[in-house]
Amino acid sequence: MGDSGEDYTGEDYNYTYACNLEYEDLGKLKVGHQQSEPIHIISVVVYIISIMLGLIGNGMVIWVMAFKIKKTTNSVWLLNLAIADFVFVLFLPFYIDYILRDFHWDFGLAMCKINSFVSVMNMYASVLFLTVLSVDRYVSLVHLNWSRRHRTVHRAWLMCGCIWAMAALLSCPALIFRDTLRLHDHVLCYNNFHMQNGYKAAMIHITIVTIRTTVGFLLPLTAISVTGILLSIKVRNSGGSVHMSSFSKTVTAVILAFFLCWAPFHAFSLMELSIHSSVYLHHILKSGFPLATSLGFFNSCINPLLYILLGKKVRHILKSACLNVTKSSLRELSQSISATEIESVPGTHLDSSPDDYLTSSTL
């Protein structure tokens, strides 16, 4: 296995599945490759921005949805969506370190598997939660009687559990095939399909990409588009009895943001399947794949911004919560200062009763 990378050196870039590597891994084997290339610097900047905005924004959404508002099915969907994004951005520093070390993985085999598993699971969980949110929005507006009987918070949590389980199951290939390889003075974190037969390795790769593109993009896009069209027709034909709320508009923006951010990644993943038969695709993928991946990862910090910009109720809740926290902090600070002043008075103690204090102060 140590010599497998030799098929991808020099300037001819002869792609072969003998390496058992996906393109994003193959690109790291190029002789003379440097992390200082502009594309990778841009990726690092995007990752850093995603971490800062993602931790703060998704943290605030989790706080609001979990503790500051009444539990509804909508808040359950948004809470779990925020949790998926929050956990994902916690692992982004590993990607940053990997790039800045010139694609040298320094965290061991287990973290190589877990890091990839979390990123893939976030993608699946996010799109599945958005799909359920879209279908639930359609049902709640069009089938009122049914939704009043069956649309409960308890069932929403059960559905969330099923979504997490399904996302974890779909992400298992990362735990199975992700591996580390020492190549010269670098350690790569890559996909090792454990196949000496290049055809079988290619089939595994094609199967993984096909499932990821179909379940993680095309089927959800179809379901969301159909429910959106049906809902629009219902609103148009309702004569004003059914209308789109500000929450529905926010959900629409969140869904559009997800598919716009992840569409380039899935497009390049499909192109990657043909790179072994086309040398020209290498240059396109080399430039586009890092940026497409960065854009997909950036989606994890967009949702909170959309909630704040488009959701009046969310803005009001955040404003009230921030004011309450500020007032509470000032109150505690004032009490702390008062206690300090009392302690500084000679002959007084905090555990003294008010009468003792009055007596001692008059002596």
Score class of each variant (00 low, 15 high):
R101M: 08
R101N: 14
H104L: 01
H104F: 05
F107I: 01
G108Y: 04
A110H: 05
A110Q: 06
K113R: 15
I114S: 04
I114C: 01
N115E: 05
N115H: 13
F117G: 07
S119K: 03
S119I: 10
V120E: 11
M121Q: 14
M121S: 14
M121G: 05
N122C: 14
M123D: 03
Y124C: 04
Y124E: 06
A125W: 09
S126W: 00
S126L: 00
S126H: 02
V127Q: 02
V127E: 00
L128P: 07
F129K: 07
S134V: 00
V135C: 11
V135T: 06
V135S: 06
D136F: 03
R137S: 11
V139S: 01
V139G: 00
S140M: 05
L141N: 14
V142L: 01
L144P: 00
L144H: 13
W146N: 06
W146T: 11
W146A: 13
R148W: 01
R149E: 15
H150T: 09
H150I: 00
H150M: 03
H154M: 09
W157G: 04
L158Y: 12
I163E: 06
W164Y: 15
W164H: 13
W164T: 12
M166T: 15
M166P: 01
A167Y: 08
A168P: 08
L170V: 08
P173L: 04
P173A: 05
A174D: 14
A174G: 09
A174L: 10
L175W: 12
L175M: 15
F177G: 07
D179T: 01
D179R: 05
L181S: 09
L181G: 04
R182M: 12
R182N: 13
L183I: 14
H184V: 08
H186R: 15
H186D: 09
V187Y: 08
L188A: 11
C189R: 06
Y190D: 02
N191A: 12
N191D: 09
H194T: 02
H194L: 09
Q196F: 07
N197G: 07
Y199L: 15
Y199E: 15
A201I: 04
A201Y: 02
M203P: 02
I204A: 10
I204K: 13
I208F: 12
V209T: 13
I211V: 14
R212V: 07
R212M: 12
T213Q: 03
V215C: 14
V215E: 06
G216K: 03
L218A: 14
L218E: 05
L219T: 11
P220V: 01
L221V: 01
T222H: 06
A223N: 07
A223H: 03
I224G: 00
I224M: 15
V226C: 02
G228H: 02
I229R: 13
I229P: 01
I229C: 04
L230E: 11
L231F: 02
S232T: 11
K234D: 06
R236C: 05
N237K: 14
S238Y: 05
S238R: 07
S238T: 04
G240M: 06
S241N: 14
